[in-house]
Design a protein around this nucleic acid. Structure first.
Lengths: 128, 128
DNA sequence: TAATGTAGTTACCATTTGGTAACTTTTGGA
DNA sequence: TCCAAAAGTTACCAAATGGTAACTACATTA
C-alpha cells in the first residue's frame, strides 16, 4: 500500500488556483483585460459567444476577488470601464503563459482533438 | 463602436486548451502522473477527495485524448498502471508551469480568497 | 467457509452551470 | 413623440456535472 510521494491535498495552491479556471469565461475575461482597460461592449465583442448575463456575472466574480476594478462614468448612455487591479495583473501572468503555450502548440491541440473524435466514433460504432 | 484588437475567437488555441482544464480533476490527474506511472490506488490516494467514479471517468477521458496510456496486468487481484504518453507529457508542461506559479504565489491566492470571503459577508449582511 | 484486496460499474440524485429572451433605465437626437 | 444606445437585470429552463452507495469479479488467504 505504498503511499504516493506526491499528494495534492485539499487546500494546496495547485487546487486553489482553479478558482480562476473554474468558470467557463473567467480566465478569458482576465486574459482579454490584460491588454488594457475595456468597456463592457468591447469585452463582449472580444469574446464571441458570451452572453450579457455571463459577461456581467463573470465580471462581478472577478471584481469580488479583487482582480478587476469597475469604474462607472455617470453619463448617458452609460459607460463602464473594467481594468485589472495589481492583484489581477499577478494572476494574469500564469494565464498568459498557459495561453502562449496553447498558441505555440496548436498542433498538439489538433492531435488531442483528432484522438477524441476517433474515440467518439469508435464508441458510436459499438452502439449500432 | 471600436472593435477590440484582441478577440478570442471560438476556435482559437486559448479556448481549446480549456479541454484539459474543464473537468474538476483532469489537470490534477495529469499533473500527478507527471511524476511517473501509477496504479489506480496510488492515484486515488494522491488526490484526496476524488471518488472511484470520478477517477475512472477522468482516466477514460484522458485516455481517449491520447494523453494517458492504460496498461492492464492480468493478475489477481487486478493491477492497472497509468502513464503519460508523449502527447500527455507535452500537455503537462503548461500545467506544471501553472502549478509552479501557484506554489510560488500562495500569498496571492490567500489575498484572493480573503477578498471573496469579505465580499460574501458583505452580501449576506445586505440580506438581513 | 468466509473475508480480503483491487479495479471498476451502475443506478440514482442534487446541484451547478450556462443559455435565451424579454425587460429596465436615462437622455439626447430624428 | 418615439426611438437609439449602453449596461444591466430577471425569470425561466435544459443540460452538464459531480457525488454516494451498493454491486461485480476472482484467486488467495485465514
Amino acid at each position: 500500500m505504498a503511499e504516493p510521494d506526491f499528494i495534492l491535498r485539499e487546500n494546496c495552491p495547485q487546487r486553489r488556483i482553479h478558482y480562476i479556471l473554474n468558470g467557463k469565461w473567467t480566465s478569458m475575461v482576465l486574459s482579454v483585460l490584460s491588454y488594457g482597460p475595456m468597456r463592457t461592449g468591447q469585452l463582449e465583442r472580444a469574446l464571441p459567444g458570451i452572453s450579457k448575463k455571463m459577461l456581467t456575472q463573470t465580471l462581478r466574480e472577478v471584481e469580488s476577488g479583487g482582480l478587476v476594478h469597475r469604474e462607472v462614468f455617470h453619463v448617458v448612455p452609460p459607460k463602464v470601464e473594467y481594468s485589472l487591479t495589481p492583484l489581477g495583473i499577478r494572476f494574469v501572468e500564469p494565464l498568459s503563459a498557459l495561453y502562449d503555450w496553447a498558441k505555440d502548440n496548436a498542433a498538439a491541440l489538433d492531435e488531442l482533438e483528432d484522438n477524441l473524435r476517433r474515440s467518439a466514433e469508435a464508441a458510436s460504432k459499438q452502439g449500432e
